[in-house]
Amino acid sequence: MRTAEVHYGTDGHVDLAVPKGTKMADIARLQELVISKINPRGCQACLSGVHFNIREQLEHVVKVDLDKMAPIKETAIGR
């Protein structure tokens, strides 16, 4: 299963992280889906200020325990 990560901030920015090799047509459909969830009744002028940052997902992700300042063992590099 291919998945995308969608992060929406209060500043109106949407970050989309898609798997490597995702086609632009799929990204356009994903953008439409995200916009419909953010503002389902918004007119084009209302949605013109939404910024999309699109990137490929990172392969090696390290999660860090901030209290201990140490990598969490289940992550890719922490294994």
Score class of each variant (00 low, 15 high):
23 K>E: 07
24 M>G: 07
66 L>H: 05
19 P>Q: 02
50 V>Y: 01
4 A>L: 02
10 T>W: 05
36 S>F: 02
73 K>I: 14
10 T>P: 14
58 L>I: 12
62 V>F: 00
10 T>N: 12
67 D>V: 13
20 K>W: 15
74 E>G: 08
70 A>G: 11
55 R>E: 13
2 R>Y: 11
50 V>E: 02
33 L>I: 09
74 E>W: 01
79 R>E: 08
34 V>I: 09
51 H>T: 14
51 H>Y: 11
25 A>G: 00
51 H>D: 15
52 F>N: 01
42 G>A: 08
52 F>G: 01
50 V>P: 04
41 R>I: 08
27 I>Y: 12
59 E>D: 15
64 V>R: 02
43 C>W: 08
69 M>P: 14
17 A>Q: 04
58 L>S: 04
37 K>G: 06
50 V>G: 04
34 V>W: 02
18 V>G: 14
33 L>M: 10
48 S>L: 06
16 L>Y: 03
28 A>W: 00
17 A>T: 02
29 R>I: 07
52 F>H: 00
29 R>N: 10
18 V>H: 04
74 E>Y: 05
19 P>T: 03
75 T>C: 08
63 K>E: 14
7 H>V: 13
16 L>S: 09
48 S>K: 06
46 C>W: 04
40 P>M: 00
2 R>A: 14
74 E>T: 05
63 K>Q: 12
39 N>M: 08
16 L>A: 06
34 V>K: 11
52 F>A: 00
41 R>A: 13
5 E>Y: 02
39 N>T: 03
6 V>R: 07
45 A>N: 12
45 A>E: 14
17 A>Y: 05
4 A>H: 08
49 G>E: 05
6 V>E: 06
8 Y>W: 14
72 I>V: 15
50 V>I: 12
74 E>S: 12
22 T>C: 02
67 D>K: 13
64 V>E: 00
61 V>K: 07
43 C>M: 10
48 S>N: 07
78 G>V: 01
43 C>K: 11
6 V>A: 03
46 C>R: 09
23 K>T: 15
78 G>D: 05
49 G>S: 10
48 S>W: 03
58 L>P: 08
20 K>P: 15
63 K>H: 12
21 G>L: 08
64 V>M: 03
14 V>L: 04
70 A>L: 14
12 G>Q: 03
16 L>K: 10
60 H>G: 06
15 D>N: 12
38 I>F: 03
3 T>A: 10
77 I>H: 00
77 I>L: 02
39 N>V: 11
11 D>S: 05
68 K>V: 01
69 M>V: 08
66 L>Q: 04
48 S>H: 05
76 A>F: 00
60 H>D: 04
60 H>P: 00
71 P>R: 05
45 A>T: 12
34 V>E: 08
45 A>D: 13
63 K>W: 04
12 G>K: 05
74 E>Q: 09
51 H>R: 15
62 V>I: 01
67 D>W: 13
47 L>I: 06
45 A>H: 10
19 P>I: 06
37 K>M: 08
37 K>R: 14
33 L>G: 07
31 Q>L: 01
57 Q>W: 03
39 N>Q: 06
47 L>A: 13
49 G>C: 03
6 V>Q: 04
